[in-house]
Protein backbone atom coordinates (compact mmCIF):
# COMPACT_ATOMS: atom_id res chain seq x y z
CA UNK A 1 0.00 0.00 0.00
CA UNK A 2 1.76 3.15 -1.16
CA UNK A 3 1.05 6.49 0.46
CA UNK A 4 -0.15 8.94 -2.22
CA UNK A 5 1.77 12.11 -2.88
CA UNK A 6 -1.15 14.19 -1.59
CA UNK A 7 -1.46 12.33 1.69
CA UNK A 8 2.29 12.43 2.18
CA UNK A 9 2.40 16.18 1.47
CA UNK A 10 -0.48 16.81 3.88
CA UNK A 11 1.28 15.06 6.70
CA UNK A 12 4.58 16.83 6.06
CA UNK A 13 2.83 20.21 6.01
CA UNK A 14 0.82 19.45 9.16
CA UNK A 15 3.93 18.32 11.04
CA UNK A 16 5.58 21.66 10.39
CA UNK A 17 2.42 23.76 10.89
CA UNK A 18 1.88 22.20 14.32
CA UNK A 19 5.42 23.10 15.34
CA UNK A 20 6.38 19.48 15.95
CA UNK A 21 9.66 19.48 14.05
CA UNK A 22 13.16 20.13 15.33
CA UNK A 23 14.32 20.56 11.74
CA UNK A 24 12.42 20.87 8.45
CA UNK A 25 14.35 20.44 5.24
CA UNK A 26 13.91 20.37 1.49
CA UNK A 27 15.94 20.05 -1.69
CA UNK A 28 15.86 23.26 -3.74
CA UNK A 29 16.82 23.52 -7.41
CA UNK A 30 19.45 26.11 -8.26
CA UNK A 31 21.72 26.95 -11.21
CA UNK A 32 24.53 25.36 -9.16
CA UNK A 33 22.65 22.08 -8.74
CA UNK A 34 20.24 20.87 -6.08
CA UNK A 35 20.74 22.47 -2.67
CA UNK A 36 19.87 20.77 0.60
CA UNK A 37 18.33 23.47 2.83
CA UNK A 38 17.18 23.06 6.42
CA UNK A 39 15.58 25.26 9.04
CA UNK A 40 14.88 25.08 12.77
CA UNK A 41 12.22 27.15 14.52
CA UNK A 42 14.96 29.78 15.00
CA UNK A 43 16.02 30.07 11.38
CA UNK A 44 17.93 28.65 8.44
CA UNK A 45 20.55 26.24 9.80
CA UNK A 46 21.98 24.45 6.76
CA UNK A 47 22.65 24.89 3.05
CA UNK A 48 24.61 22.11 1.35
CA UNK A 49 25.83 21.29 -2.15
CA UNK A 50 25.92 17.68 -3.34
CA UNK A 51 24.29 16.53 -0.12
CA UNK A 52 23.27 13.03 0.84
CA UNK A 53 19.96 13.53 2.62
CA UNK A 54 20.63 10.66 5.06
CA UNK A 55 23.97 12.10 6.18
CA UNK A 56 22.56 15.58 6.59
CA UNK A 57 19.57 14.21 8.53
CA UNK A 58 21.88 12.37 10.92
CA UNK A 59 23.99 15.42 11.55
CA UNK A 60 20.99 17.71 12.06
CA UNK A 61 19.37 15.15 14.37
CA UNK A 62 22.52 15.05 16.53
CA UNK A 63 22.57 18.82 16.87
CA UNK A 64 18.94 19.82 17.01
CA UNK A 65 16.84 16.75 17.86
CA UNK A 66 15.49 13.64 16.17
CA UNK A 67 12.39 15.18 14.71
CA UNK A 68 13.93 15.91 11.32
CA UNK A 69 11.52 15.75 8.39
CA UNK A 70 11.44 16.89 4.79
CA UNK A 71 8.72 19.53 4.80
CA UNK A 72 8.94 21.80 1.75
CA UNK A 73 6.45 24.43 2.98
CA UNK A 74 8.72 25.37 5.87
CA UNK A 75 11.40 26.36 3.34
CA UNK A 76 9.19 28.54 1.13
CA UNK A 77 10.90 31.75 2.25
CA UNK A 78 14.35 30.26 1.73
CA UNK A 79 13.42 29.00 -1.72
CA UNK A 80 12.07 32.42 -2.69
CA UNK A 81 15.15 34.33 -1.51
CA UNK A 82 17.52 31.90 -3.22
CA UNK A 83 15.54 32.17 -6.47
CA UNK A 84 15.69 35.95 -6.27
CA UNK A 85 19.41 35.85 -5.56
CA UNK A 86 20.17 33.56 -8.48
CA UNK A 87 17.90 35.69 -10.66
CA UNK A 88 20.11 38.70 -9.87
CA UNK A 89 17.33 40.56 -8.07
CA UNK A 90 18.52 40.05 -4.49
CA UNK A 91 21.82 41.25 -3.06
CA UNK A 92 21.49 40.07 0.54
CA UNK A 93 19.39 37.59 2.48
CA UNK A 94 16.76 38.61 5.02
CA UNK A 95 16.14 35.14 6.42
CA UNK A 96 16.62 34.57 10.14
CA UNK A 97 19.65 32.32 10.61
CA UNK A 98 20.44 29.62 13.16
CA UNK A 99 24.23 29.28 13.47
CA UNK A 100 24.28 26.56 16.10
CA UNK A 101 26.03 24.11 13.74
CA UNK A 102 29.10 26.33 13.94
CA UNK A 103 31.38 26.61 16.96
CA UNK A 104 32.01 29.85 18.80
CA UNK A 105 35.02 31.05 16.82
CA UNK A 106 33.36 30.02 13.58
CA UNK A 107 30.31 32.03 14.50
CA UNK A 108 32.38 35.16 15.12
CA UNK A 109 34.04 34.76 11.74
CA UNK A 110 30.78 33.95 9.96
CA UNK A 111 29.17 37.08 11.38
CA UNK A 112 31.99 39.04 9.73
CA UNK A 113 31.55 37.23 6.42
CA UNK A 114 27.93 38.24 6.48
CA UNK A 115 29.04 41.88 6.29
CA UNK A 116 31.06 41.50 3.08
CA UNK A 117 28.94 43.33 0.49
CA UNK A 118 27.52 41.77 -2.65
CA UNK A 119 29.99 41.71 -5.51
CA UNK A 120 32.98 42.61 -3.32
CA UNK A 121 35.90 40.51 -2.15
CA UNK A 122 37.83 40.21 1.06
CA UNK A 123 40.78 38.05 2.06
CA UNK A 124 41.21 35.31 4.64
CA UNK A 125 43.73 37.48 6.48
CA UNK A 126 41.50 40.54 6.39
CA UNK A 127 38.65 38.55 7.80
CA UNK A 128 40.85 37.14 10.55
CA UNK A 129 41.84 40.68 11.53
CA UNK A 130 38.19 41.75 11.60
CA UNK A 131 37.36 38.81 13.82
CA UNK A 132 40.06 39.98 16.24
CA UNK A 133 42.54 37.19 15.37
CA UNK A 134 44.90 38.79 12.82
CA UNK A 135 47.17 35.74 12.60
CA UNK A 136 44.40 33.23 12.16
CA UNK A 137 44.03 33.40 8.36
CA UNK A 138 44.42 29.64 8.08
CA UNK A 139 41.81 28.99 10.75
CA UNK A 140 39.50 31.37 8.92
CA UNK A 141 40.04 29.27 5.80
CA UNK A 142 38.90 26.21 7.72
CA UNK A 143 35.85 28.04 8.98
CA UNK A 144 34.97 29.03 5.42
CA UNK A 145 35.41 25.46 4.28
CA UNK A 146 32.95 24.28 6.92
CA UNK A 147 30.49 27.14 6.52
CA UNK A 148 27.10 25.57 7.34
CA UNK A 149 25.32 28.20 5.22
CA UNK A 150 27.23 28.72 1.95
CA UNK A 151 25.71 31.27 -0.48
CA UNK A 152 23.68 32.86 2.33
CA UNK A 153 26.82 33.56 4.36
CA UNK A 154 28.96 34.57 1.37
CA UNK A 155 32.22 32.73 1.96
CA UNK A 156 32.61 32.76 -1.83
CA UNK A 157 33.61 36.43 -1.46
CA UNK A 158 36.69 35.47 0.53
CA UNK A 159 39.89 34.95 -1.50
CA UNK A 160 43.63 34.66 -0.97
CA UNK A 161 45.82 37.74 -0.43
CA UNK A 162 46.99 37.55 -4.06
CA UNK A 163 43.44 37.42 -5.33
CA UNK A 164 43.55 33.69 -6.01
CA UNK A 165 40.21 32.02 -5.35
CA UNK A 166 42.06 29.38 -3.26
CA UNK A 167 39.22 26.99 -2.41
CA UNK A 168 35.52 26.41 -1.93
CA UNK A 169 33.65 23.58 -0.25
CA UNK A 170 31.30 23.38 -3.22
CA UNK A 171 34.18 23.38 -5.72
CA UNK A 172 36.02 26.31 -7.31
CA UNK A 173 33.70 26.28 -10.32
CA UNK A 174 30.82 27.25 -8.10
CA UNK A 175 32.81 29.95 -6.33
CA UNK A 176 33.64 31.41 -9.71
CA UNK A 177 30.01 31.16 -10.85
CA UNK A 178 28.76 32.98 -7.75
CA UNK A 179 31.30 35.75 -8.14
CA UNK A 180 30.47 36.05 -11.83
CA UNK A 181 26.78 36.31 -10.95
CA UNK A 182 27.57 39.13 -8.56
CA UNK A 183 29.81 40.85 -11.11
CA UNK A 184 32.66 40.82 -8.65
CA UNK A 185 34.99 38.47 -10.44
CA UNK A 186 36.39 40.53 -13.30
CA UNK A 187 36.96 43.83 -11.49
CA UNK A 188 38.67 42.37 -8.47
CA UNK A 189 40.50 39.29 -9.55
CA UNK A 190 44.18 39.78 -10.22
CA UNK A 191 46.21 37.35 -12.20
CA UNK A 192 44.90 34.32 -14.13
Amino acid sequence: MTVSHTLDAHFRAAASAEGLLDVAYDIVDSPLGPLFVATTQAGLCRVAYDATAEQEEERLARHFGLRVLRSPGALDGTRRELDEYFGGGRRSFDLPLDLRLAGEFSRTVLEQVRLVPYGELTTYGGLAAQAGRPRAARAVGTVMNRNPLPIVLPCHRVVGSTGKLVGYAGGLGRKEALLALEGGLLQNRTGP
Binding site: T2, D8, R67, R70
Partner: peptide, 22 residues
Protein backbone atom coordinates in the same frame (compact mmCIF):
# COMPACT_ATOMS: atom_id res chain seq x y z
CA UNK B 1 20.00 4.25 17.92
CA UNK B 2 16.80 6.07 17.09
CA UNK B 3 16.87 7.23 13.47
CA UNK B 4 15.91 10.76 12.38
CA UNK B 5 12.12 10.92 12.04
CA UNK B 6 12.29 11.05 8.24
CA UNK B 7 13.85 7.55 8.14
CA UNK B 8 11.29 6.19 10.58
CA UNK B 9 8.41 7.72 8.62
CA UNK B 10 9.64 6.45 5.26
CA UNK B 11 10.20 2.97 6.65
CA UNK B 12 6.70 2.56 8.08
CA UNK B 13 4.27 4.87 6.27
CA UNK B 14 3.11 2.39 3.61
CA UNK B 15 2.43 -0.44 6.04
CA UNK B 16 0.71 1.83 8.53
CA UNK B 17 -1.60 3.11 5.80
CA UNK B 18 -2.33 -0.47 4.73
CA UNK B 19 -3.15 -1.41 8.31
CA UNK B 20 -5.45 1.61 8.77
CA UNK B 21 -7.26 0.94 5.48
CA UNK B 22 -7.98 -2.58 6.62
Amino acid sequence: TIPPFERFYEAHRDEVLGFLRK
